[in-house]
Computed example of a mutant assay.
Amino acid sequence: MSEQTIDLKKRRFLTQATGVVGAVGVGFVAWPFLSTWKPSAKTKAAGAPVDVDISKLESGQLVRVLWRKKPVWVFKRDKSALDALTSEELMSKLADPSGTGNSKNQQPKYVSSSFRSIENKEEVAVIVGVCTHLGCSPTYRPEPGASDLGGDSWKGGFYCPCHGSKFDLAGRVYAGVPAPTNLEIPPYQYVTDSLIRVGIDHKNT
């Protein structure tokens, strides 16, 4: 074998070795940069915001999304449902008619007390679907007058089948049931008139 052939082999080996080392070096340099694109542990724990398109949401219709591993209900109330929420008959049956409750995390300050929704957007409700008693998920029962829930005194709302707690269509708890407080209202905002973002506070706070 000639010296020229040996030199060519050495050169090829050195070229390949340099390429491999260079690629590994680029990988080490790129990793810290790419890793900054990943959400932090704090962000993951907090839960990313969830967008809900309400452009086709009809009165009485409810959609469910998952936020922070909890179900969130987004539903539309018609005028009769809104009128019922402020009626003296219903208010007399609630444990917390003002809707403020005794928990600082129960609802944001920018939602109204009776409708528990953002001002001028009262027809759409956004509520965490977890009973405040033992964490079951109540059933949506929007039909007024349901015989198994009190007949004429039932104005529509939510019934928890686990232990019988009842909530109105604003998530306010009825008096005399196991649930101690109203259903939670999560932070949310309107990105547009037809898009709600759950997990981010209303912009005008």
Score class of each variant (00 low, 15 high):
182 N>D: 15
23 A>G: 08
155 K>C: 00
37 W>F: 14
140 Y>G: 05
124 V>H: 04
7 D>C: 05
174 Y>V: 02
176 G>W: 02
64 R>E: 15
72 V>E: 06
199 G>F: 07
144 P>M: 08
105 N>L: 14
69 K>N: 14
81 A>F: 08
96 D>P: 01
189 Q>D: 05
57 L>C: 09
147 S>K: 13
137 S>M: 06
140 Y>D: 06
71 P>W: 07
25 G>L: 11
202 H>T: 01
28 F>I: 13
190 Y>Q: 03
116 R>D: 04
125 A>V: 04
78 D>V: 08
162 C>S: 05
87 S>C: 11
82 L>V: 08
101 G>N: 06
5 T>I: 12
46 A>K: 15
87 S>A: 13
110 Y>N: 13
154 W>A: 04
95 A>E: 14
173 V>S: 03
111 V>N: 03
160 C>G: 06
199 G>N: 10
184 E>V: 15
172 R>I: 04
45 A>I: 05
49 P>H: 13
106 Q>G: 15
108 P>V: 04
38 K>Y: 07
177 V>W: 01
130 V>C: 02
72 V>P: 04
97 P>N: 08
119 E>G: 06
59 S>F: 14
163 H>R: 03
201 D>N: 12
35 S>G: 00
166 K>C: 03
15 T>A: 12
82 L>N: 10
166 K>I: 02
153 S>D: 13
3 E>G: 12
61 Q>A: 15
52 V>Y: 07
8 L>C: 05
202 H>I: 00
179 A>R: 06
46 A>G: 06
55 S>D: 09
23 A>Q: 00
96 D>F: 12
135 G>L: 07
139 T>D: 13
94 L>N: 04
154 W>N: 05
8 L>E: 13
152 D>G: 07
131 C>F: 01
64 R>Y: 03
75 F>P: 09
194 S>Y: 00
27 G>D: 00
67 W>D: 00
50 V>E: 01
192 T>H: 11
57 L>M: 12
155 K>S: 10
49 P>S: 09
97 P>H: 07
